[in-house]
Design a protein around this nucleic acid. Structure first.
Lengths: 145, 145
DNA sequence: CTCCATGCAAACTATTTGCACACGT
DNA sequence: ACGTGTGCAAATAGTTTGCATGGAG
């Protein structure tokens, strides 16, 4: 699914997995498909409001749980207590800058290597899809602090 | 601070950082020093009960926040909503087995290399102290599932 | 003796659940 | 029509905060 996916495509994806194409599910997937930012339930709720009739928070929670179960979205804990959600696309990882709060995104390559090494050494099977690291982004790292 | 640290040593560490050596802080550090497991506030509260007079949850939260600020303990989010706490010792990382829920611990070496590579490639300064990964532990990886 | 830390109770926030009704197929 | 999804309201769980009292230095 790509940025700003059409409703028809979303319907197809849902049906494909045996899920009813309800308005809540379509709205949530549509919003999440616009820029692959990770959003909290509350952000989702207000984003939905700009274009669709309101969805009850309880429904959003249940919708996301279902979509996660069927491998369409992923959850991520950023440290505050709200869970963030995004479309499941390719594996990628994040660094949150402790100075300016910006989020840097990394592709999976280096982490993939790490996972392999961990398997070799410890026998574990690491499933890293959306890792969250903390530290300083390039800009703030230069200014030190 | 080592496993089962003496009260005198704990007092010293606290004073050293300009902190009052109160009974709550001593009790919390004492409990955390016994096996470097990561504990939830509730586990801490009941562990304290076996040896000390009860500490109010609110006090435990405030105590941990203070100790964290002074670099004595670290927090960790395991995915359920309770924050876990441990003494800050050496950097190490964890894998939680999604099958048997066990926690595997890794030393820092491989991750340290990864952090270096990220700095080289992206200019970021990664601060990874207690990373939490998910996957399968060696035992469950063999049995597949 | 002076503050900082603690206990208690109430407030808050994110999330979950029960139930009757509405919608998708 | 049938069964699943949704809205609403109430319940829950973890955590935070205000305020008066108690203990550490």
């Amino acid at each position: 699914m790509d940025v700003a996916t059409s409703v028809a495509a979303i319907r197809a994806v849902l049906r494909q997995r045996g899920l009813q194409a309800t308005s809540a599910r379509i709205a949530v997937l549509q919003i999440l498909s616009e820029g692959h930012r990770h959003r909290s339930v509350d952000e989702l709720r207000s984003d939905v409001l700009t274009r669709y009739p309101a969805i009850d928070p309880a429904t959003i929670y249940r919708t996301l749980e279902t979509l996660e179960l069927h491998g369409l979205v992923v959850r991520m804990e950023l440290g505050d207590k709200r869970t963030r959600w995004a479309l499941l696309t390719h594996d990628h990882h994040h660094l949150i800058c402790r100075n300016c709060e910006s989020v840097v995104e990394f592709d999976d390559e280096l982490f993939h290597r790490l996972a392999g090494e961990l398997t070799r050494r410890y026998g574990v099977q690491v499933e890293m899809h959306h890792l969250v690291l903390r530290g300083l982004c390039a800009t703030c790292a230069l200014t030190d602090s």
